[in-house]
Write a protein that binds this DNA or RNA. Structure first.
Lengths: 168, 168
DNA sequence: TTAAACTTTCAAAACTTACTGAAAGTTTTA
DNA sequence: TAAAACTTTCAGTAAGTTTTGAAAGTTTAA
């Protein structure tokens, strides 16, 4: 396989994986493009390479900056904005974990805590089943949350070292 | 909060979380409904409780069975099919991890391995950046894969214990 | 102070995904 | 053998999401 084809495949695969896991396809593709590009790209270049509109490119880049995955840079004497991605995969993973935890997991945890307090008659089977399920899921979700937290604090080697010790 | 309201909120939240993470909303809602229902439900009952069509209910239930989260049961002397969900949250988490690993992670791992072998001129910066990114992401993806694998084999307490030991 | 170079916005269009419901299929019972 | 009771299918439609592109906005330079 030649480099241009490989790049194309990488961008497509990243876009697909993103969309399967709830991240907009274009956003994942722009990210992929920046990840395999040395240096920076302008909006124009991104538009051209991925055949997307100016509006789409602009919004997607803004989102990526909101996720902390991309930054912009100005070159002295130039008006154009240059975009580049942090290429440290461990940072990327942590950044994504951090945002999704905040945006999606936290609201659910809050609700589950609330639902855990709903009171009812212990003789009522409906209530007992509801209560047990909610309590169990709440425990699981808290474990997931704690794992995210660990991940955010951890250094890469230390983290994977700790997890992989598990195999032995 | 009263039980019926709490149930409704649980179903909605589970549906929302599902759709944010790439699982069809209705599928997550049907699953949620079955999780908080003692015993079994028929297609009719599911249709009524969630206001969905027969076709949708049928396909969703089939998908849930395909994911190994729901099973059907026949009662002697009755034609109707009764559906119920496995309520063990650790089983659920493992089942979901297993399916998504197989459907989504594995194809990407395969591609990344392939892209890791693309050859090029070490003096070419484009190639070097591509190669480094792909190699790094491949490593990360393999770690994720191994974590899934551990999870599939493990008992719940042992697994979270191992991951959370990391805090100490 | 205005024109050029660029970025941002957002209503409408295109695309994608999910859902409906009627028809076809299957199984059981009489 | 037929009819009743149920399940499955899928073409068409609806709902949801993403993308476009032109217009408005901003910044810089002359």
């Amino acid at each position: 396989m030649e480099l241009p084809e490989a790049k194309q495949k990488f961008i497509e695969a990243w876009g697909k994986l993103g969309s399967e896991w709830g991240i907009n396809r274009t956003m994942a593709q722009v990210h992929a493009l920046l990840l395999i590009t040395p240096g920076e790209l302008t909006t124009e270049e991104i538009m051209a390479q991925l055949s997307i509109s100016r509006g789409n490119a602009n919004m997607t880049l803004r989102d990526l900056m909101g996720w902390g995955l991309v930054e912009k840079k100005h070159r002295p004497g130039e008006r154009k904005e240059y975009f580049y991605a942090d290429k440290d995969t461990w940072n990327i993973a942590r950044q994504v974990a951090k945002e999704r935890r905040r945006r999606e997991l936290e609201p659910v945890l809050k609700l589950l805590d609330e639902l855990s307090t709903v009171e009812g008659d212990a003789k009522n089977e409906e209530f007992r089943t509801f209560n047990k399920t909610v309590t169990d899921i709440n425990k699981l979700a808290k474990n997931v949350d704690r794992t995210f937290e660990t991940m955010l604090k951890a250094e890469e080697n230390w983290f994977w070292g700790s997890i992989l010790k598990v195999f032995k």
